[in-house]
Design a protein around this nucleic acid. Structure first.
Lengths: 93, 93
DNA sequence: CGTTCATATGAACGTCTATTCATATCTTAT
DNA sequence: ATAAGATATGAATAGACGTTCATATGAACG
């Protein structure tokens, strides 16, 4: 268990998407242009994040708006970043 | 960046190894029998954890002793666990 | 030195995963 | 109803990853 969460966060583009949305909300196209990723690719990743329960979706007109449901994931990413940085200067690139 | 760390923690067996060693130290064979994993497999995973900088190795006689260098990773695993649990009851299995 | 214990390494294999391309779906406006 | 905008979906592909098996390495000890 927890495997899916880690696998989900294990992809850089998905983490970028989470960071990008942050505590606000965004539609697919905005994320797509913001991160310079293909719309289709973003959609696929959003689906995974959604199924993991990290995001929620809301229809608003033509657009689908995404929001981070569990903001804990942002702090988790932050701690991971700190840990990752502290691993840099120890012979392991 | 940070990609390798997440990928590393993305494997259940590697997380089990980290938990298993915990704040103590263990040799390969102990981990192997403790987790009921092939010695070879454990060795491969230890190598990855080592290269990520999460573990350090020490030769002691015939044995190789492994230790968790960055205990922050244990707390990180803990927070991830909590987050993962909170994701269970929201329609996403 | 040869043997045994403990571990590392490399090749091989199947499986999972990210990405792309093409197309379908759904919504609003004309 | 048709068209255009916005997004989702499915197939296909290439590359990465986890596991296993067989073998190599290294240390201690007779």
């Amino acid at each position: 268990m927890n495997d899916r969460l880690f696998k989900c966060l294990g992809d850089q583009n998905r983490r970028r998407i989470l960071y990008c949305i942050g505590r606000g909300e965004m539609c697919v196209d905005d994320i797509s242009t913001c991160l310079e990723l293909e719309q289709s690719l973003v959609s696929h990743h959003l689906r995974e994040l959604l199924e993991c329960g990290l995001l929620e979706r809301e229809r608003r007109g033509k657009k689908n708006i995404y929001r981070v449901t569990k903001t804990q994931v942002l702090t988790l990413l932050e701690s991971a970043k700190e840990l990752g940085d502290s691993l840099k200067g120890c012979g392991c690139e």
